[in-house]
Design a protein around this nucleic acid. Structure first.
Lengths: 333, 333
DNA sequence: TTGTAGGCGTTATCAG
DNA sequence: CTGATAACGCCTACAA
């Protein structure tokens, strides 16, 4: 009654009166056995309740049938929803998902890579902490297939799926302008600013503002509700005339709306707000949030498929995938 | 350059000029070796970049150092935040977390149990689909340690951590009464109603309403934003005099607020709303959401610790853990 | 303090 | 079509 039961290939083989190798063939549907043996073996498998020991299999095949997902902050619904998609897609490939968050800490991220690798994951899907590239390159070079999300990278063993972030920023700013806003500011992510890759939402914001010959103030804070609130508080204090805000993501947009409300102003009448990501709650907020949609289902499916490709063709360089984004117009702008 | 590098215990042993058994002793810090050998071995480990193959280890010890988390719907921030807590606690125990969602589908839940078991998880933490108990009992009897969250169960190999849900419903209803509401209704979870365990939030709602000699209407729908919106639309259509709503969880409360707004009524002036769970966005909503807090950090830590206990003492029956809840008063009621 | 032999449950190799 | 036999990388006896 204690511990695992443990019916093995050998048990099945003995009862079925064949060798364990034959049972293995049937289990993996390798072919090379008669219909008679197949039915007999499958019968015994059923009867005994045999389940293959995936660890033993992985030990020899070097492939565990698992995928690792490494995020930064699951409190952000965007990431949670992505995790859900990855888990679903992984299931369709017969894979199971490991999950961990790095808290934007590089050491932690490396520790996670290390652990997952020791578990022989087939590959890892990662939102890199602070957008760091070198560690990704290092692990990939050592043979761990890595798919980077939301960042463009290439190299053998490296996959990359990103969205047209700059295009999204363009859509957002243009929309704010088209609804008559003259004084547009941005609530940006302080971690993007600290990262080594150029912050694309900011770049897109700046260049689009320039096209309109407008100056856009930017306040940096963490990409959270709190951060959005603080950033917009600061913005409003320094530039009371602001009538439009483009937020780094929907969480910051939510904080922005809260700060605007606290300042006694109204959304969208006094200040219009546009978010980024289109998480599920956007639609339910009052007022509902206008935002830039990233197709998460597609993103997660592509990420899992990319891991598979990396596993099958480890030595070639794969083209990055770039997804389009879309403006979802709702009540906040 | 292709695939895994694969430094083994033997490689380290050869270079260090000792036996692999000695290296194993050092790696697992078993003692029984001189300081000299320790430093020599650790040096070589460092130099070669040796990492233990967790699968090989697990094959023998029957313990993979992984924990499985099985949820119903990660789109609910409550569950996402719980997953984060579990992952953190698991990390502290040196364990890695598997993650999957059942979509409230029993077959899927069983398939997940099966897969995770084949991966030799140390234990599984589960939000049971439709609150079903029999499958949990069955797997536990077969030797899979299972910790059930949000439901009270006992038995060898079974752990249980729940919150004082009925007490929470009591707090919620009493609060609505204390702010002068006379016509209180509930937006309830249709899956709880379908499940075999008695729906505690509803039970608590009913009994507390009785204590106040009030009749409370209940509408059932899915425990989502959409479901909350639909339930409250129905409630408002049938009973226009409603001035207070107790929602199954914060997502339904969010939908409720949306429905109330759509009906041209105001929160909390016309209708007060109380949620359940206290997810992160509650505080940021406008108006912010009064709700019943479940201590998620505690919940997830206890769940992981319970798995550990189950692993160490598989044959005894463990007492269920019950956590207190707390009313968090904000603007919505 | 150290090493040797054996096996965990599976797949791979090669022979029949 | 089928079956011995040897790995995979590690741990657990037991012996020295």
């Amino acid at each position: 009654m204690t511990g695992r039961v443990g019916i093995t290939l050998h048990d099945v083989a003995r009862v079925a009166g064949v060798s364990s190798r034959t049972v293995s063939r049937v289990v993996n549907d390798e072919g090379g056995f008669s219909d008679a043996t197949r039915t007999r073996v499958t019968g015994v498998i059923e009867q005994l309740g045999y389940r293959p020991n995936l660890l033993a299999r992985a030990l020899i095949t070097k492939r565990s049938g698992t995928i690792g997902l490494v995020g930064v902050d699951i409190t952000d619904p965007f990431f949670a929803e992505l995790a859900d998609g990855v888990q679903r897609s992984a299931g369709k490939f017969g894979k199971t998902m490991f999950f961990a968050t790095s808290d934007n800490d590089l050491d932690r991220q490396n520790a996670i890579f290390e652990t997952m690798w020791s578990h022989a994951v087939d590959g890892v899907i990662v939102f890199t902490a602070s957008g760091s590239q070198e560690h990704v390159l290092e692990y990939a070079a050592r043979g761990l297939p890595i798919v980077v999300v939301d960042q463009e990278m290439t190299g053998p063993g490296i996959g990359s799926i990103s969205s047209d972030i700059i295009g999204g920023a363009l859509l957002a700013v243009n929309h704010l302008v088209s609804v008559g806003r003259k004084n547009i500011a941005m609530a940006a992510n302080i971690n993007s600013a600290a990262s080594r890759i150029p912050p694309r939402r900011e770049a897109g914001f700046r260049s689009t503002m320039e096209q309109h010959s407008m100056v856009g103030h930017i306040a940096h804070d963490t990409a959270t509700i709190e951060g959005g609130r603080r950033a917009v508080q600061k913005l409003l204090a320094q530039h009371p005339g602001i009538d439009g805000i483009f937020a780094y993501n929907d969480m910051m947009a939510l904080g922005a709306m809260q700060a605007i409300d606290a300042a006694g102003r109204r959304v969208p009448d006094d200040i219009a707000v546009v978010g980024f990501d289109d998480v599920a709650i956007c639609e339910a907020l009052v007022p509902s949030l206008t935002t830039i949609r990233i197709d998460r289902a597609r993103l997660s499916a592509e990420a899992v498929a990319f891991v598979q490709r990396l596993v099958e063709q480890p030595d070639i360089t794969h083209d990055p995938i770039r997804l389009d984004v879309e403006l979802i117009r709702r009540a906040s702008a």
